[in-house]
Amino acid sequence: MHRVVRTSLVSLALLLSACATTRAPVRQPGDAATLGRQAQRERDLADTDHWTLQGKLSVSDGKDSNSGTLTWRQDGDRYEFTVRGPITGRTFRLTGGPDGADLEGLDGGTRHGTDAESLMAATVGWQIPLRELKRWALGLRADTGAADIAFGGDGLPSRLVQDGWTVDYKAWDTTRQPAMPLRVFAEKAPYKVRLAIEDWSFAK
């Protein structure tokens, strides 16, 4: 069951590199100006919890890598996280909220769990910190603990370290106001989660 969709490292690299232009790896500690702008950004986006992102997701446990196209719909505390494998076409659909999570697309039918993270880990072996990733994907610090943040030459977050995870922001869509992340790489050895975001949409 843990063998969901196998991909080679070469195809995985091509999949992600095609999605956005790589950002120069400049990392500067926050000063009063950049930390002030980040604080304002977090205030501006504090109530942004009705959105949809579409793109590609890859996960790795240090041995196996799996990837697929991703549609993530966030509606307040409710979410729908749908991944389709590129080779088999198999679809996994994770839905839920404060009352628990359901995962469809498994052999043997839908599974239920008390939370999304433990359900994904137990059923398909994916270690995805969904609670934190919900904020990290927006370029925000999660509310789960202290965070260290560094910035690129453009003044946008470049690296975020929180809850044992290192989150690198490889590309941003600066045509939006505020700018939105396009490539988000999170790692907590041996686990890796990579988002290559192709489109953001926000409910008004």
Rank of each mutant, 00 (worst) to 15 (best):
R3D: 11
S11C: 01
A13N: 10
L15S: 10
S17V: 13
S17E: 15
S17A: 14
A18I: 03
A20W: 11
T21K: 14
T21Q: 11
T22H: 09
T22S: 13
P25N: 02
P25A: 01
V26R: 05
R27V: 11
P29H: 03
G30N: 00
G30D: 03
D31F: 02
A33Q: 10
T34C: 03
L35Q: 13
A39D: 06
Q40A: 13
Q40C: 00
D47L: 13
L53A: 01
L53Y: 01
Q54V: 14
G55C: 07
K56L: 03
V59E: 05
S60F: 00
K63Y: 06
K63Q: 12
N66V: 08
N66K: 12
N66I: 04
S67F: 09
T69F: 00
T71E: 14
T71L: 05
R73P: 02
R73D: 09
Q74W: 05
D75K: 13
G76M: 10
E80L: 10
V83W: 00
P86M: 02
T88P: 07
R90T: 14
T91L: 03
F92N: 08
F92Q: 07
L94P: 03
L94R: 10
L94G: 10
T95N: 09
G97M: 12
P98K: 15
P98F: 09
D99W: 10
D99R: 14
E104V: 00
D107T: 11
D107R: 09
G109E: 03
T110F: 10
H112T: 12
T114E: 14
T114H: 06
T114I: 09
D115N: 15
A116R: 05
L119Q: 06
M120N: 08
A121N: 04
A122H: 06
G125I: 01
W126A: 14
Q127V: 13
R131D: 13
E132S: 15
K134N: 15
K134P: 01
K134W: 11
R135A: 15
W136G: 08
L140I: 11
D143A: 15
D143S: 15
T144F: 03
G145W: 05
A146G: 12
A150I: 09
F151C: 06
F151T: 00
G155T: 08
L156W: 01
L156R: 03
S158I: 09
R159S: 15
R159N: 07
L160C: 08
D163T: 11
G164A: 04
T166I: 11
T166E: 12
D168K: 07
A171L: 00
T174L: 06
A179T: 01
A179I: 06
V184M: 01
F185W: 04
F185S: 13
A186N: 00
K188H: 10
R194I: 09
L195N: 00
A196T: 11
I197A: 00
E198L: 10
D199F: 03
D199H: 14
S201C: 02
A203L: 05
A203G: 12
K204L: 09
